[in-house]
Structures are given as structure tokens and as C-alpha cells.
Design a protein around this nucleic acid. Structure first.
Lengths: 162, 162
DNA sequence: ATTCTTGCAAAGCCTTTGCAACTGC
DNA sequence: GCAGTTGCAAAGGCTTTGCAAGAAT
């Protein structure tokens, strides 16, 4: 991934434990939660529940669907993950230690390209201001075809002509 | 709604009929489809499948869920409607005769406020250009609280203090 | 007459939940 | 030992689909 990580003083695991104990009713830190936090933060991917379950099973972790969903909710609450509502299935990405950004999504290969744009952010703020709208967040996805897929499509097109 | 309509030469109904007959296998124009097109274009609302079904039933149209879903798909294909994928349920809005725009969504009252922003559009184009990304479209929703709901919330807060 | 559309109910997909067994603190 | 967590399977919410009956051209 392309964006620089933000400097953070705590590991994701530490931050999560802190979140758990600071609840009005303290919550417990279990083996499965620990496995999930470590697994998720050992890579930097966008993922949905199924992809996570598959990947963890391949890595010989035992995880149950229900618990994964329940733990993902806690991870979002704790500020470790961000939840992207794109279409019918939810997608998750790192929030803690990672800057605010937007996404380009390639319809061919499914890749998510992250970017930051000051011009975009100030345009968003300006719109909210104009409409006296108290913005709390936003979702932005630009759909299309990435550079590599464009190349291979035009290559393919040229081959088709031979 | 706030944005000016685009001038169009055909009625939505005419455009839909044209779409139907121009398919490789011509499709039929039925009473229920006609009712849906007229109903949907007699108002300018964002709606999901359920809201449409309820509203049409209240207006004494007989519609079946399956047919509504099937017809909505055709209306999107024909360019009459745009489908907004926000979270688990799909939302629809007029596309034909209506300019490209983005949305502010109020979390309190559910209202969708439409807006256009040249600054935003050019920022989007610029991002795609920088990443050599061939953009085909985008989704943008700004979430927060609208002016009216903000007002009533602060009114309520003041009352609470009495 | 042919082929598309309809309506029902059933299945699909993703996510949530009730409950008994289990486990962190 | 108490209170929160797990795993299963069942239920939920929204959308799609198989199929027989009906309708448009």
C-alpha cells in the first residue's frame, strides 16, 4: 500500500485492550480476539468478513463466523478498523495508525488504490459549509479501471486484431 | 428538490419504450411497468424497493415485489434511474432528465440533500488522472446532520438545561 | 402462436442472534 | 464464581430466481 503510516505510540493490540477495559462493563480479551487483531494488523489489506475467515483458516487459526462478526464490530468501535459500506457487503480497513484517505476501485482486478487529496477534502468541507450541514464523515469510491488493467485490455485488443 | 431539471425531448415513458424495443430481443411494455414509470416520475424522491411498493400500494396500484425488483433493474439499464449502493439496501433516484450530483445524507431525519460542486468534480478528475485510472463513475455520500436537525438538537439541549 | 412477463414461494447471500457451554478475570 | 464470550444453528433483512399461468405482439 502507498500511504505513509501515522506514528502511533501503542500497538493495535494494546489499544484494543485499553478499549476493552475502559468500557462501562469491562470486556474480556480472548485468544480469538488476539489472533484476529494480530492477523489483521500483520498485513495491510481491505477485506470483508469472508475473506478474513478464509485467510485465517488457511493460516490454521480456528475462527467461527459469528465470533468474527462480533469481534469486527468491537474493532470498529475501538477505532482500530474502519468499516466501508460499499454495496451489499461490508469491507474493512485499518483505521488506527493510518491516515484518512479515499479509494479508487478497479472493476477488473478488484484492487483498491488509496489516495489523499487536499483539494477534494476542502471541496467537501466547503459543500458542507454551504449547506449548513454538520458533516460527520463520508464515503467516496471512484470506480473504473486501473492502469495495469487498462494496459492489458488494450494489449488484448491489439492481439485480437491480429 | 433543489437542482434544475435538464431539458429532455422524450418523456420517461417514451424513453423506456424505446429502450424496450431496441433490445436484441425486444421486450414488452406491460401495465405494471407503465404504472411504475409514471408513479416514479410523478415525484422526485430517493426511494428503495420497499418504499416504492408501500407508496404504490397506498395509491392503490397492485404491484408484486418480484416484478418491482425486475422492473427497477430495467429502469436502471434504460438510463431512467440511477442506483445508489449505500449500505445493505439499494436506493434509487431519477437519472433521466436530472443532472449528475452528489448527496448529503442526514442521519437524524434521513433526508438526502443534493448538490453539485465544480471544485469537487475537478478534484475527482485530477485524482484519476494522477493515478492513470480510467474512471467510469463514483459514489459519494457525506453523512452528518442537516441544518434543521442541528437546530432542533440544540433547542432540545437548551430545553434540557431548564 | 410465440415469447416475454408475472406472481408466488423458495432459495440466496450476508449478517445478526438465542442459547447452552465455556472461559477470562 | 460471576459476567462476558464462544459456536452452533436458526432467524433476519434484502434481493434474486424457478416455474407455471397469464399477457403482449
Amino acid at each position: 500500500m502507498s500511504l505513509p503510516a501515522v506514528n502511533v505510540s501503542q500497538t493495535p493490540e494494546e489499544k484494543f485492550r485499553e478499549y476493552l477495559v475502559s468500557r462501562s462493563r469491562p470486556q474480556r480479551y480472548t485468544d480469538q480476539q488476539r489472533d484476529m487483531v494480530r492477523f489483521i494488523f500483520s498485513q495491510h489489506h481491505h477485506f470483508d468478513a469472508d475473506q478474513l475467515i478464509d485467510a485465517m483458516k488457511k493460516a490454521s487459526f480456528s475462527v467461527s463466523r459469528a465470533t468474527v462478526y462480533r469481534t469486527l464490530t468491537k474493532l470498529v468501535d475501538s477505532g482500530l478498523l474502519r468499516k466501508l459500506e460499499l454495496g451489499p457487503r461490508m469491507c474493512y480497513e485499518h483505521d488506527y495508525g493510518y491516515p484518512q484517505h479515499e479509494h479508487l476501485q478497479c472493476g477488473q482486478c478488484g484492487k483498491m488504490i488509496e489516495f489523499q487529496s487536499l483539494a477534494l477534502e476542502s471541496a467537501l468541507r466547503e459543500v458542507a459549509r454551504l449547506h449548513h450541514f454538520n458533516a460527520s464523515g463520508h464515503t467516496l469510491i471512484i470506480r473504473g479501471t486501473c492502469q495495469e488493467c487498462n494496459r492489458s485490455r488494450s494489449n488484448k485488443r491489439m492481439l485480437d486484431l491480429i
